[in-house]
Design a protein around this nucleic acid. Sequence first.
DNA 1: CTGAAAGCGCTTACAG
DNA 2: CTGAAAGCGCTTACAG
Lengths: 331, 331
Amino acid sequence: MIDVAKAAGVSKSTVSLVLRGNTGVKAETVEKVNLAIGELGYVYNRDAAGLRNKESNLVAIVANDLANPYLAQVIIALEGQLEQQGFMPIVVNINESVARQTAMVASLKEHNVAGFFITPAPKTEAAWLQALADASSPVVCLMRDVEGANVPTVMPDNRLGMYLSTRYLIGLGHRRIAFIGGVESISDYQERKQGFMRAMEEAELSVETGDIEPSSTKRQGGKIALNRVLDRAPDITAIVCFTDVVAYGAYTALRERGLTPGKDIAVVGFDDLEDSRLMSPALTTVRVSAEDIALMACERLQQWRENQKVPESALVGVELVIRSSCCSVGK
Amino acid sequence: MIDVAKAAGVSKSTVSLVLRGNTGVKAETVEKVNLAIGELGYVYNRDAAGLRNKESNLVAIVANDLANPYLAQVIIALEGQLEQQGFMPIVVNINESVARQTAMVASLKEHNVAGFFITPAPKTEAAWLQALADASSPVVCLMRDVEGANVPTVMPDNRLGMYLSTRYLIGLGHRRIAFIGGVESISDYQERKQGFMRAMEEAELSVETGDIEPSSTKRQGGKIALNRVLDRAPDITAIVCFTDVVAYGAYTALRERGLTPGKDIAVVGFDDLEDSRLMSPALTTVRVSAEDIALMACERLQQWRENQKVPESALVGVELVIRSSCCSVGK
DNA sequence: CTGAAAGCGCTTACAG
DNA sequence: CTGAAAGCGCTTACAG
């Protein structure tokens, strides 16, 4: 910057004024400075600026698992939003590990970050999250709630979503329905399970304990879980899956048993990944808009920054998308 | 830091020494300082440190498409490597857009970054990449080559991979084989196509122009491409796909036509995603180890930093993984 | 409209 | 073994 100042024949104060787009600089001077910038290939040091004025354009997206395609969609939507608002989103992956989450966030705090979006790892401590929110910049949780921390969370209406899909299956005549996939220590699992149970109870349908089979949220998890359930209870006619990915695993398990998904057994998912529309049979699922999540999350970040106080949590709407993976019963 | 110094009754120079793990500090003093740090909840400002000593622990991973599952694997492997080496990996997504790539990289340069890993967007200018390598920190390209830029690239042996899988199909008795998916403006497409062509030529098999059908690298692309090819040439018995994801789209297209992948038509992929093993039928594909890519890429970053000169490119080995998606011909 | 000076939170020779 | 001073690249009142 001092070189630019010399080349333009002005002081570095003036260069700074130009860089920051200050209006009260003579047009001629602005031009000289910009010329010098171009010639010297000068690059602004935003860290130095941040050191002085405490501002930052960096927003951290702390992602629980980059291999999760739904999360990828949320991140992409978030990036779009943040860039529109002039932020630079950086993403960091914690692979569902609290230890990595702690380490990554600590490291991020050492850099000047304007805010955190975080999908908390399983077993995240409320105290830790609270300390982060108290000490540093705004934090908003995505997809998962951490009970006991006063931090806004933006997540889908998990209960409603599962309730809707389960009721749909019941309406199709299914009586024995299994719920597979998902990890019990995470809030969204509990919520989705509650939605499922409510629909079943309302219809006065019983749920055997073995009909609920948690598993990893990967495709492999869905495959294993469905096999277990079917080994125990071959008379099940429909399954609701914790996520679409779990449903894909269920498809595989069915095919390997010589069963056709959507014909022999009804399957519903949750997320509405792009792929679900392109499966064969196309997957009936609960759509939750990644754009809406991103939008509401960014609103909360802004509110926090502007009002200096913690905003409210929000539930994002869900919608049952009916495709071809659910037969009527007896058909 | 000045507060810590006061609380510990030492100078900030000493605090800095302790923070940096300097050995020549009295054990007693170290303890006092660490105590003060703990009590005050002090957090180190790494940007300020970087301003002074020009060091940085930040490494940028500039990803062309976060929704691409293979890239996600590479990123995860890269993160593992980088953290072992004491770096803080941050990822930034450019969504296959050169414009975003330019903007994101410009923004990253304003922060103090120790190096760049980048999967260049289609139509990346060699001059732009060269300028980045000349001006700033080390750059290594991943997965895709940009011709004309003196920047090390780490990518799979695309030619060999496709050659291997095509030869395998030929060995199974297939004579008319299509090649679907992939975007022509990217180097890996050209290389994989060359591998395919070489195997066909060696076997003295002709390839009609219509038997090569590029498409987006998404599932939808594979589906569309295969439908086009099959509309034109129903006598095709095998298809090689640009990637596993394209192959998944091909599965869907086949099923929708009432055909069974692996029985009516042989399908091979490229990447060996985790899902491919879990498909039904399990996908025969070309495995390229994301860990190897990450390893070789990090080595190059280190070499560049240590020797101050541009390292060589590297080709990562490939391996044909035979599963159940390829029938013999006439079967 | 522009420049000189102080200061952001660190590190690094250099004294002592 | 520890402290005082200078400086990294910026910004921001404050003069003029």
